[in-house]
Write a protein that binds this DNA or RNA. Structure first.
Lengths: 159, 159
DNA sequence: CACATCTGATTGACGTGTCAATCATGTACC
DNA sequence: GGTACATGATTGACACGTCAATCAGATGTG
């Protein structure tokens, strides 16, 4: 007698599995959305702005080559280029030519940008605590770490 | 002797907590991104297209009032309106006037839209299994359900 | 009926994200 | 030195998302 059902791993998820999946992804998005709203209300910064300002704040001389900044925030170059242009218009950052490679550009945090980041940082981190850390038990936090690691292993393996 | 430190819940997260937070949110986004890419490669549908087609597929007569559709996918009206316009241009849906309320509009799944959804559905669900369900143990799936519930409770309580 | 008001839905402006094309400078090799 | 190619970065076109304004048709009240 042959086995006529395909291997379980090739089939669609069950209704329960799908419910958990949807809960996961919708919760993550809702959490993100709430934090973004707060950030915007309190500091007039988008999550993208915050990521760029954070990376520059931590950089030597508060400046980074464009490509290093792209790596730091995990964006594609063109996305960074568009975002940088908009941020420059709001005087959050400035673009300098790079002295050692005339193809390159350096992105520099302005004083205004540094100030904006400082003002945004504390309330943002407090919101992360309120909406994420404090909502979970220490055991649950451990579990989150475990399974995000598991998911990332799967994502990184060639599909 | 007075306690000079603020309550723990008002402080910023610790480095460990922040690492777990970042891992969580970045993993969720990476997972979403991967599924979106696959959906787009295999079916030329965006996640938004898929959500709309799914809701219409499950609706009586494969049609919904605009506002019901907005509720079903959890979007704001204007977002839906913009998306619907683009989808209409690709013949995935059609807009009809509503007979009982001349302000209203009905969104109807076209045959082509229904076909596109059917083709997209199976590979998409298989991807959810591969990248999410199969990456986790049954215990971890349970844990995910628990803590997403906890997070949502926090999100829903007035902040 | 006349008027104000509410409601369903669309629109316009603008910020955001992706992809492919482009441009200019650096580098290697003859 | 000159040609080919690689690399850093920008641009343009277009899809997507949010907000505020708008518009048309429904509804309530005198």
């Amino acid at each position: 007698m042959t086995n006529s059902t395909p291997p379980r791993s090739r089939q669609s998820p069950t209704a329960d599995e799908l419910r958990i999946w949807r809960g996961f992804i919708e919760t993550a998005q809702a959490l993100n959305g709430r934090l973004s709203s707060r950030l915007h209300e309190e500091s007039a910064l988008s999550p993208g702005d915050y990521a760029v300002l954070l990376a520059l704040s931590e950089a030597d001389g508060r400046r980074l080559r464009s490509s290093e900044l792209a790596d730091a925030v995990g964006w594609e170059r063109s996305r960074l280029s568009h975002h940088i242009r908009r941020m420059e218009g709001r005087d959050l950052i400035r673009r300098d030519d790079c002295a050692v490679d005339y193809r390159g550009a350096e992105v520099v945090l302005t004083d205004h940008g540094a100030q904006a980041f400082r003002s945004a940082s504390v309330p943002h981190l407090r919101a992360v605590r309120e909406l994420f850390v404090d909502a979970l038990t220490p055991e649950q936090l451990d579990q989150v770490e475990q399974f995000t690691a598991a998911l990332r292993t799967r994502l990184d393996s060639p599909t």
